[in-house]
Simulated scan of single mutants.
Amino acid sequence: MIRDLLIRGLITGVVAGLLSFGFAKTFGEPPVELAIAFEEQQAHAGHSHHDDHAHGTTTAEAAEAEPELVSRDVQAGLGLITGVVVYSAALGGIFALVFAFAYGRLGALRARATAATLALFGFVTITLVPFLKYPPNPPAVGNPETLDLRTILFFGVIALSIAAAALSVSLFRRWQARRGSWNAAQIAIATFVGLNAAALFMLPSFNDVPAAFSASLLWDFRIATFGVQAVLWATFGLLFGALAERLLEAKRPSRMTLQRG
């Protein structure tokens, strides 16, 4: 049974990757192209200014760029779709394994509801919470000297968010029998929000956006990136839930049977 769910998770991941690629290509690439144009313009202006005052070389010589290892067309086409599909397929396999563990342990939730709950859990903990503190930046935004630190902190926020979610679920299960599902859910949600709010408040912030960079362009890029993740997780919740339901709901196997499969 686990193998069957894993196959469905991989299939869902590939479909989610293709849909995410389509969204990214439609809504994410235009801001990226404009950001790259801004970066090239700033680099050209910087080289021209430096050469005119220091070396006396021509503008054409200053504008000459090193050859690209991978062309922009490949990056935006084959490279993008390959990266997105491989990532989403791997995530789909992980999602299927988590589903196999959670199915039957979330009360009376059936397969579709379980998948939707897990997808919402993943979207909030892995996408929404980190986005609130360290939203993605397009080309021309970000200080290379702080890249390593920002990367570490980004994944640190994800780890803290998952830990806060695990603690909240534990509290919900503990308080459910004493206070009822509604009160237990309020306690769990308050715990999750409070822990994440405290963590995000204490972590350092970075303001690496150039003054001349368009605020609307930055907003468009970040919303497009957020939308790609929303498409990804929505596909997991809806498509995997439908596939898993067809596999599991016919005979409604017990949790023990699922674990042995």
Rank of each mutant, 00 (worst) to 15 (best):
T151H: 11
L69K: 02
D73R: 02
F154S: 08
K133E: 00
F213G: 04
T127S: 15
A199D: 04
A185T: 15
S161A: 15
F23D: 02
I94H: 06
E64I: 05
F131A: 10
A113L: 04
G28W: 04
H53M: 04
L218H: 08
S254V: 12
L10K: 00
L18S: 06
R173S: 12
R222D: 07
R3I: 08
N183H: 12
I11C: 06
A65C: 02
V98D: 02
Y103M: 10
W182P: 01
F95M: 03
R72K: 07
G79P: 02
R8K: 13
S88W: 08
G28P: 03
A119N: 05
E249D: 14
L238S: 09
G142K: 03
S71G: 15
A166T: 09
F27T: 06
Q176I: 05
G93I: 00
L19A: 14
Y103P: 03
L203Q: 08
G46Q: 05
R252A: 14
F101V: 10
G180N: 12
A165W: 13
S20V: 11
V228M: 14
V86G: 06
F201S: 09
D220E: 15
A16I: 01
N183T: 13
I2M: 10
W219H: 15
Q75E: 03
N143E: 09
H53R: 05
L149W: 02
D73L: 01
T12K: 07
R3F: 11
L106V: 07
I152F: 12
I94S: 13
R112G: 01
V231T: 13
R222H: 10
S254L: 15
A54Y: 13
A16Y: 04
D52V: 00
F206H: 11
I189R: 07
I189W: 15
G77E: 02
P136I: 05
L6G: 01
A224I: 07
T235D: 10
L10M: 04
F23Q: 07
H50C: 00
I158V: 15
L106T: 06
G180V: 09
F236I: 07
H44C: 00
A62H: 02
T125R: 00
L238Y: 13
H55Q: 02
L232F: 12
R150N: 08
T82Y: 03
S71I: 01
L120W: 06
T26I: 03
R179P: 00
H55C: 05
V14M: 06
T114G: 07
L195P: 05
A119L: 03
Q41E: 13
H44W: 04
